[in-house]
Design a protein around this nucleic acid. Sequence first.
DNA 1: TTGGTTGCAAAACGTTTGCATGTGC
DNA 2: GCACATGCAAACGTTTTGCAACCAA
Lengths: 143, 143
Amino acid sequence: MGFKEPYQDVLKKKNLKATKHRYTILKALESNKLPVTAEDLYFRLKEKGISISLSTVYRSLETLHEKDIVLKSNLPDYNKAVYEYNNNEHRHHMICIKCHKMQPVTGCPLEEYEKLIESKFKFTVKGHNLEVYGYCNGCGCEE
Amino acid sequence: MGFKEPYQDVLKKKNLKATKHRYTILKALESNKLPVTAEDLYFRLKEKGISISLSTVYRSLETLHEKDIVLKSNLPDYNKAVYEYNNNEHRHHMICIKCHKMQPVTGCPLEEYEKLIESKFKFTVKGHNLEVYGYCNGCGCEE
DNA sequence: TTGGTTGCAAAACGTTTGCATGTGC
DNA sequence: GCACATGCAAACGTTTTGCAACCAA
């Protein structure tokens, strides 16, 4: 097969086999701007006529997350993990309390804060998670 | 009973009945500096000889969280919710990736960032969550 | 008295796993 | 061929819920 799949290099670099499913998952994640749950992704693929098992979705996402190809996060008051493609473009999200929609915000206000923590406490910072929540424009609900 | 339970006012103000269990839970949360899981709390109370059902612990924590008396958060790569008393002292936490211990950090670097988001996007900020993770002093593991 | 609270057991939910089969390298 | 990836169903651990008994107001 002379055809070169996208993501082949990304996967090979991390010692992962380049399978059709992984390719499909990465493509779906990358084309989608917003983080999704495993189930979201599963149904999205199913709609496109792609037959994949839910456990494969979970297993692939977990593997890709371990290799840092995919980012995983947990949101407040939402007991599901969400996944997004890691394009190494550091960003955070605004999350609507009402409709759970997430919108990305590029940039990060935490560089100095992390330095402060490292110097003040004996703590080796490896990362952080930051989400701002409230009401998005579409919901407009001020409760 | 002329005896005035602590937390009676806090509960009454939120239209919650002042029950022995709620009193016990709030006392345990407030005396404990760090966030705990529902199960942690359940066993902690059990050890003290307090008989309470796990579902009551969950239900109470959820109710208290709804009324903003208790804070609830979900941590990355840790599929349990943790709860802490809301003493209205705004703070964040450092979380050890290895031992899952959480240490509080008072202060918040996000005031300006939130203003920026409100003005840049049409988004009404209601709160945020921020945790820094890495390796704590005790664990000392740099992977 | 009345409506909120609790205990218990069972259900629900998201996620993981065992095992047999399939597939990339 | 071999190790890894997948599908299926069953298991898992956390959290929620239905219902009867209980208790604060």
